[in-house]
């Protein structure tokens, strides 16, 4: 009798666990990213949050990168770049690389405009995230998908 009761209880517990897991899975696509290689934690570590308005910052990448070893990219932020109002930094993250960090550009008002480029390594097709940190503490972000034909993470 007690055995049977325990079985029922454990089944119910399993059901609740299963239901929670299913709900978590269902809610994932809402975030826009099905994957997280730690880029959110990396972003939180740099700007204090993993969410920001999609505004003012843009990231330019080839739509299809044939060689993931060297993918040119540039970031730009709309800003007057004055002492009072300028872009402090733009951080770039790869959401599908073994490590999320790509690089951080640190601007000063002496730059005149906030626009910089470099080249990154991409292991596979994924989303790239650019996060802009403004001098007044505001944070903006942009994402861009890039298709990678041959991955560039060595090994």
């Amino acid at each position: 009798m007690t055995e049977k009761l325990q079985l029922v209880v454990s089944n119910r517990r399993h059901f609740i666990l299963g239901a929670t897991a299913a709900a978590t899975l269902l809610s994932l696509p809402k975030l826009g990213f099905a994957e997280d290689n730690g880029w959110k934690a990396a972003m939180e570590g740099l700007v204090g949050s993993s969410e920001a308005d999609a505004n003012r910052v843009s990231i330019e990448l080839p739509e299809i990168a044939e060689n993931g070893n060297t993918v040119p990219f540039s970031v730009a932020v709309e800003s007057p770049m004055t002492d009072e109002d300028h872009v402090k930094a733009v951080h770039v993250f790869a959401t599908g690389n073994p490590r999320p960090d790509i690089g951080s550009f640190m601007f000063t008002p002496a730059n005149g405009v906030a626009d910089a480029s470099s080249r990154m390594r991409l292991g596979r097709t994924q989303d790239i995230v650019a996060v802009a940190e403004m001098s007044n503490g505001q944070v903006f972000m942009a994402t861009q998908t890039v298709k990678v034909t041959i991955g560039g993470c060595g090994g």
Partner: peptide, 23 residues
């Protein structure tokens, strides 16, 4: 005076290229 700087991680390609503006 520092006008621009960058932190690079392993996700930057070999022979790192960096370009930036200057007023």
């Amino acid at each position: 005076a520092t006008v621009f700087s960058m932190n690079l991680h392993a996700g930057i390609s070999a022979n790192p290229f960096v370009s930036f503006p200057m007023k």
